[in-house]
């Protein structure tokens, strides 16, 4: 019961982080209009920040699989 509760809390935290990442993607923090500096290894700003956000979302997905109903044996499927 305790483990389930803490997993739920972790899942909510991960979801909140994913939502925040998505929201900041649509702000000038990631897509400043007409600005491509600072560059990272020559890569324009929007591209490298977008890349980091994508990687972060995949990492959050991985962490999500560890806490969201990950150990359920009896479940659906066709």
């Amino acid at each position: 019961m305790g483990k389930e509760h803490s997993n739920t809390k972790r899942w909510r935290l991960l979801t909140a982080l994913a939502v925040v990442l998505c929201i900041i993607t649509f702000t000038p923090l990631v897509i400043p209009q007409g600005i491509y500096k600072p560059e990272l290894f020559g890569i324009p700003y929007t591209l490298w920040t977008g890349f980091l956000i994508t990687v972060a979302l995949v990492v959050l997905t991985y962490l999500g699989t560890k806490v969201y109903h990950h150990d359920e044996e009896k479940e659906g499927g066709a």
Partner: peptide, 13 residues
């Protein structure tokens, strides 16, 4: 990249 890759990241989550 934002159009597809970031959106795909959100989709897999």
């Amino acid at each position: 990249w934002i159009f597809l890759a970031v959106s795909d990241g959100a989709m897999v989550f």
